[in-house]
Design a protein around this nucleic acid. Structure first.
Length: 301
RNA sequence: GGUGCCAUAGCUCAGAUGGUAGAGCAACGGACUGAAAAUCCGUGUGUCCCUAGUUCGAUUCUUGGUGGCACCA
């Protein structure tokens, strides 16, 4: 049975470099679970692996599609599972790396097979825009009292998604949620890259400055026609759109990118904390990671 | 050098005729099963510049410092 090594951690923590080092050591490929590095139109602002890194080891799910075809977590689960099937035919180890916790969990634990409906969601969104959240919350109370009592009723995305599932399936959302972990045809080893908060924030600030030097502003400007697509709701892009709109100054935009990236990193860390026994390593501790991996037995996910 | 004004949270500031203080932003904590770099929720974290007085009690009033700003030299 193959072994999937999952490398997580906050943005700018140095996950990609660790992944390349490990992949070189195990002579294995790297699969990304970064929801913004999927898109070929976004390069500078998403800090995709460098050309050198991509030539050193095979990378998958890196800039392999267009922002016109967004990849949802559910679709990612299916595509990535199919890919792993092929990769494990030739490799005993595959590395999964990326900052999108939901996507990593979709692949590792699986999502319940819930329906989606663009049409229903569009209807719900239009109600939300015209009448606000209250009627949607009330509709959810009628359609699924159980989930109504559990859901964050102030969060439009949660309420709308739950209603979307109810209407598309004809069943209460809560009936379809099992919270069961899927069984996978591979073992999973999870670890995370971490460092002191201040150090992480310094790296983030420095990386944003680098992105500016590399021409992030021009990259974002070239994407103005696509600004409403969901992949462009992204730190580093939204702020420049605000600047182009004259809402904020250039300097403010850059400061906001740094701040919003720090906030994003904090949310990633919060997400990872619920993975109680996650093993943390420093970004340069590749030898330590290799030693740790050879010391653990398969089977304890 | 003189005169005036100012000094309160990480930042910008408000405030109490004397009873140890509060806004915005930041920060921190959390939620999150198909928008997830998204979306949403919660929390004041403080030698009220220092000093000596007055007072039952001083961050608030008074004295003397220190630092900043403005104007005059």
């Amino acid at each position: 049975m193959g072994r999937l090594v999952v490398i997580q951690g906050a943005t700018a923590a140095g996950k990609s470099a660790v992944a390349v080092s490990l992949a070189t050591h195990y002579a294995c490929p790297v699969v990304s679970c970064d929801s913004r590095q999927f898109y070929r139109e976004m390069t500078i602002g998403t800090a995709v692996p460098s050309v050198d890194e991509q030539q050193a080891v095979a990378h998958y799910f890196i800039q392999d599609r267009s922002i016109n075809e967004p990849l949802t977590a559910g679709a990612y689960e299916i595509e990535a599972l199919a890919l792993l099937d092929k990769l494990f035919a030739h490799h005993s180890t595959v590395i999964l790396v990326g900052g999108s916790g939901l996507y990593a969990d979709a692949l590792v634990y699986g999502l319940d097979p819930l329906p989606t409906s663009e049409v229903i969601r569009a209807e719900l969104n239009s109600i939300y825009e015209r009448q606000g959240l209250a009627p949607l919350v009330e509709a959810l109370r009628m359609a699924d009292p159980v989930h109504y009592s559990l859901v964050d009723r102030q969060n439009p995305l949660r309420v709308i998604r739950a209603l979307e599932v109810c209407r598309a399936s004809g069943m209460p959302y809560s009936n379809l949620r099992t919270a069961r972990h899927a069984t996978r045809p591979f073992e999973v080893v999870r670890l995370a890259i971490d460092m002191p908060r201040q150090e992480l924030y310094n790296r983030i600030n420095g990386r944003v400055d680098q992105m500016i030097e590399q021409g992030l502003e021009d990259e974002v400007r070239s994407l103005i026609p696509y600004r409403d697509l969901s992949p462009l709701r992204t730190v580093g892009y939204s702020e420049f759109f605000d600047y182009f709109d004259g809402k904020i100054s250039h300097d403010t935009a850059i400061d906001k990118i740094k701040q919003n990236t720090r906030n994003y990193a904090k949310r990633q860390l919060t997400w990872l904390r619920r993975e109680g026994d996650l093993r943390y390593f420093a970004p340069h501790a590749v030898d330590e990671i290799i030693a740790w991996m050879s010391s653990i037995n398969y089977g304890n996910i």
